[in-house]
Design a binder for these strands. Structure first.
Length: 495
RNA sequence: GGCCCGUUAGCUCAACUGGUAGAGCAGCGGACUCUUAAUCCGCGGGUUGGAGGUUCGAGUCCUCCACGGGUCACCA
């Protein structure tokens, strides 16, 4: 205890003394209730446009809680601001209104304290909507000084480790997460209106499936069972389509035991949806519709700024075949393109450490390195090689290609959709191919899931399915370059 | 994991080729009843991320470690 006390800063000691003084005056530092009539942002919304005269005649009484963000003491009168995550409201406390004893108590309040104010709204000389405080109550004492009022909290590490401080000090951060929440609500509305059922499928899988990724492992004691945090919900959602839920979606977390970067967090949020009696062309239309809907409703426009780019969400989005995209951006001649050894050695230049590069993998690497960074406007890349798409049906036009597209925006993969592979024999063959790759050291290869094959044997209708990365999409809509800016608590090493 | 950059007061940042660690905000004391980056006067606050080393002398140079950022590698 004493050791901890020694670590307190001078300002924290001052606050402790103030707390002791408040207690001595019989004031509860952490009371149970404050019956508010309005929140700060409700006051701004409801009364923000009222004129000085209207406020004078209406004498609007409010009880409003908030956190003290600034204090300007001027002898026997004090101006201060209280805030919630949305808005700020000025308050004015005068000794001749609240009395000398109360005014002295207010002297013990600090920036950061949470208070409840009771008073009348008015407008100051300079026109700012303000509460004239008649009564006030401490609702929670703040032990620590808050960061600086002009610059807010800048230290990126502290912002992530103490997100609450980030939210208190940097209103634009609260806006990011507000938008994220609105976006997810709009997605639900979009799919609900189209007759989709929202479901929750397991987060713990005996066999991790539905994506090429390394899983996190865990253990169930009572069952003595090794389990994996899911890398994708795909195989479960398709089991539901087999079960007759013809339109189904899930918005939830996936976990992938891989590197962390500005575009990768080990846990991330995916929207996945499946629609029976559809194919990837239907998914493509639906995706355009969804993104246009989101952009319009979130930003009220059909374009947005991302970094130094303008990104347009006007239909139709650009479409390009995987092969054509490679030819256009990689600089490879068509003759080289068709010779697997050439592509594999070309890909090795980018990925010298990678072993077991196959033709399909090599094409994928070249796509990632040469093509993706150039696709800024929303672009559907269609028909990648079948070999790297083991859950997608082969193209009806070319058996070496898959009925699949990825949507790239700002160089980031945002969505991935297929005409779902529903032939159990074909699926089994693909899994076996993946198993071979796994044996050759490809730790990300898909696992063989015989239970899923059995489900397919009961008949999966022709189905289109898609996954959309919610975090990355939020990055686009909020103009953030790092995924950590759109995840409230990104994974960091414990300090 | 490789490479580069960063870590200085509660916060935001200074400190030139190694020479007494500073400012603003915040805090404390005083003045002040329409301020809003309030103003005015005064004051306190530091194991410079940690551990070693070089040097008469290290925030600054070297080594190692920790954490973060960027980038490459890995990867939906």
């Amino acid at each position: 205890m004493d050791e901890q006390k020694e670590k307190l800063s001078d300002q924290e000691l001052v606050r402790q003394e103030k707390m002791a003084k408040l207690k001595a005056k019989g004031i509860d530092l952490f009371p149970y209730v404050f019956l508010k009539t309005h929140s700060v942002d409700e006051i701004i919304a409801q009364f923000g446009s009222k004129s000085r005269e209207e406020l004078e005649t209406e004498k609007i009484k409010v009880k409003v809680p908030g956190r003290i963000m600034t204090i300007r003491r001027m002898g026997r009168a004090t101006f201060f601001h209280i805030a919630n995550s949305q808005s700020r409201l000025q308050a004015y406390i005068r000794q001749d209104v609240v009395g000398p004893e109360a005014y002295e108590i207010f002297d013990l309040y600090d920036i950061g304290d949470i208070v409840g104010l009771e008073g009348t709204l008015f407008r100051t000389k300079t026109g700012e909507l303000t509460v004239l405080v008649e009564n006030f109550k401490l609702l929670a004492k703040c032990f620590h000084p808050l960061p600086e009022k002009w610059h807010g909290l800048q230290d990126v590490e502290l912002r992530y480790r103490r997100r609450y401080l980030d939210l208190i000090m940097n209103p634009e951060v609260a806006q990011i997460f507000l938008l994220r929440s609105k976006m997810i609500a709009l997605m639900r509305k979009f799919f609900d209106e189209r007759g989709y059922i929202e479901v929750e499928t397991p987060m713990m899988h005996p066999i991790p499936g539905g994506a090429a990724a390394r899983p996190f492992k865990t253990f169930h004691n009572a069952l003595g069972l090794e389990l994996y945090l899911r890398i994708a919900p795909e195989l479960y959602l398709k089991r539901l389509v087999i079960g007759g839920i013809e339109k189904v979606y899930e918005i939830n977390r996936n976990f992938r035991n891989e590197g962390i970067s500005s575009e990768h967090n080990p846990e991330f949020t995916m929207l996945e949806f499946y629609q029976a009696y559809s194919d990837y062309y239907d998914m493509l239309d639906l995706t355009e519709e969804l993104l246009v809907y989101l952009c319009e409703n979130l930003l009220g426009r059909d374009e947005l700024t991302y970094g130094d780019q303008i990104i347009s969400f006007r239909r139709p989005f650009r479409r390009i075949k995987f092969r054509e995209a490679l030819l256009q951006y990689s600089g490879l001649s068509p003759s080289r393109f068709d010779r697997p050894e050439e592509i594999i050695s070309f890909a090795r230049n980018f990925s010298p450490e990678k072993e077991a590069i196959t033709y399909g993998k090599a094409l994928d690497i070249v796509f990632d390195k040469c093509v993706k960074p150039h696709l800024i406007q929303p672009t559907f890349v269609l028909n990648p090689p079948r070999e790297i798409s083991p859950l997608a049906k082969a193209s009806r036009d070319n058996p070496e290609e898959a009925e699949r597209f990825e949507l790239i925006i700002a160089g980031m993969e945002i969505a991935n959709a297929f005409t779902e592979l529903n032939d159990p024999a074909d699926q089994l063959a693909r899994f076996e191919q993946q198993l071979e790759a796994r044996k050759k050291g490809d730790e990300e290869a898909h696992w063989l899931d015989l239970d899923y094959i059995q489900a397919l044997e009961y008949g999966l209708p022709p189905t289109g399915g898609e996954g959309i990365g919610i975090d990355r999409l939020t990055m686009i809509f909020t103009n953030r370059r790092s995924i950590r800016e759109v995840i409230l608590f990104p994974l960091l090493r414990p300090k």
